[in-house]
Design a protein around this nucleic acid. Structure first.
Lengths: 342, 342
DNA sequence: CTGAAAGCGCTAACAA
DNA sequence: TTGTTAGCGCTTTCAG
């Protein structure tokens, strides 16, 4: 490759190979009907010039960029970082790259992600909104490829990949029940159902499973937490024990809370799992490294990413938005040592 | 806004406002010399058509995309996720968006990130390599804006933002010494200096601080760990105690290891910080939620991201790669409760 | 102050 | 099998 001054263009290659730009373009796009000799001359010219096609020009013509936007609340939240990683991986396997938009739980920025689609910078948008309100739905109108992620069901005019919060929570609870627990606390839970959220939906799954197994619900076992951090999880356990509440199983609504729960129990010399079984939710990487390794609910991150990318690319192919549709992704229990059933 | 069929172009706006496309372009670019009446007519047409400029066409003309690439090993590693978050934030404040490339510690993909720059898809590359070898340096040649991140100093022909691993480790160790510790273990450390890595550089800082304070080094206090996870941190502590090694301070080479260290100590009823002081490295979000909240080294994530973005955008402005330069970012101790000096 | 026109680098008809 | 040419939608001289 000649390290020439200016970057080589199609034109330069054509000139050097003594062919037309069209032939070079054909060559680059693997057009089959071409004399081997021509092909070879072009190949050589491309190599000598170190030519690389300018994607911007290509995009302008084709109307595609090979880019998709992924808009999510915050990469500092491990769940979203892992979701992003998975999405990037899936997209790369299909030849796409990903622009990450971090909205910081800001409604305006969630709307901006959608608005930015008007400028054709990316081929589609995967949006995980947390603040968008019902009255903002019109912001999502349009014909561009769009997939919504997450539990906030509002009537978005697009496919919606939904995590099965309720089912996952029910599975976790049923698992503890099968393990013999009868006094199951839910750390991070809430009885407030006014806003649909992970919090309320997971609590609902918990309550459902209890009901199904004929176990009475006890409000003192539902421990609200402000933030979902290990500190809050630990605090919930301390308070519970201080109040004389003695669960034999604890379902923490996410893994970070569960970390705090386990660590506090161990601190207090309460044996996990012998005295109290613990299960978390999210299956973040660290969950397998706690002591004991933590049973948790895998919300199907990999599948969520795969389905979202599938859908968005299908829409890109089709050149238009797919109709509203709800795609539920199943959760899966990850059995580890913090909650044996035996 | 009229929800017309096809997307409106400059041309459409021009026609509707009865002006030339050039005037519309001028309007969009805040060209000052324009009759208010004209301006107003264009404004109205733009609004009525719901016109939004097509960035691809714009990019083709301007040669810029407003996109930068950030190539890093793995978003599942909290440090990198937080670094990405910070980079995205910094870039957004300057009107840029970020494509994240996750290389999965794969040398080929690190090289590919660089090669992709030839296609003009993004305006610059911030690369955090972990596998690139000295002989790969030529892959980084070129005139496009480039910033290297991380401790692996090889002669990359570009600015290099370096985390002060050694200094940070020395600070952490000195802090423990000031706190009265004299038997300081380093969890995750190594005496192998053959490859420069966080591991070796941080260990070096530890050794340097010991030497400076006239404290003898004891190999049994240097505990290697395979993975840097909390499980490994816990294991290191268990093994140490099983071998009769009794440190009064533990420096864990990252926060995840430190989580395991603290949790294991508490498990063994060894009081933190009264009996053993603990300090980590990275200052990930969770560090403030451990019990007790953990002292750690903030490697200057925010500043690293800011400097990287600064440099890359300066290069974009200049239209060319900046010369090789080493930009050191200072670490900072974050004092919390796991290692009081008093 | 405004408009005409020439491309940016490439692809896709269509001709040859 | 290869070449010619007309744009993709926008910015930017350069006239007027």
């Amino acid at each position: 490759m000649v390290t020439g001054s200016r970057k080589a263009t199609l034109h330069d290659v054509a000139k050097r190979a003594h062919v037309s730009v069209a032939s070079v373009s054909n060559y680059l796009n693997d057009y089959p009907y071409m004399k081997p000799a021509t092909r070879e001359r072009i190949r050589k010219a491309v190599e000598e010039l170190g030519y690389v096609a300018n994607s911007q020009a290509r995009n302008l013509r084709s109307g595609r960029t090979g880019l998709i936007s992924l808009s999510l609340p915050d990469l500092n939240q491990i769940y979203f970082a892992e979701l992003a990683e998975e999405t990037i991986k899936q997209a790369r396997e299909r030849g796409y790259r990903v622009i990450i938009e971090s909205t910081g739980n800001d409604r305006r920025r969630e709307i901006d992600s959608a608005r930015a689609m008007a400028s054709n910078m990316t081929d589609g948008l995967i949006l995980s909104p947390t603040q968008l309100r019902a009255e903002d739905v019109h912001e999502l109108e349009g014909d561009y490829p769009l997939v919504i992620l997450g539990e906030r069901i509002f009537n978005a005019p697009a496919p919606h990949v939904v995590m099965s919060n309720e089912m996952g929570a029910a599975m976790a609870t049923a698992h503890l029940l099968r393990a013999g627990c009868r006094t199951i606390a839910v750390v991070g839970g809430t009885l407030d159902e006014s806003v649909p959220s992970s919090r309320s939906m997971r609590t609902k799954g918990y309550l459902g499973a209890l009901a199904e197994h004929g176990v009475a619900m006890d409000p003192s076992l539902i421990r609200e937490c402000g933030e979902w951090t290990s500190a809050e999880g630990a605090k919930a356990v301390r308070e519970m024990f201080a109040q004389g509440v003695r669960p034999d199983g604890i379902f923490a609504l996410n893994d970070l809370l569960a970390f705090g729960v386990i660590s506090q129990l161990r601190e207090m010399r309460v044996r996990v799992p012998e005295s109290v079984r613990v299960i978390g939710f999210d299956d973040i990487d660290e969950a397998k490294y706690t002591i004991p390794p933590m049973t948790t609910v895998d919300p199907g991150r990999t599948r969520i990413a795969a389905l979202a990318v599938d859908s968005i690319l299908a829409q890109v192919e089709a050149g238009k938005r797919a109709p509203r549709e709800r795609i539920d992704v199943d959760c899966r229990l990850v059995y580890r040592d913090s909650s044996p059933e035996v």
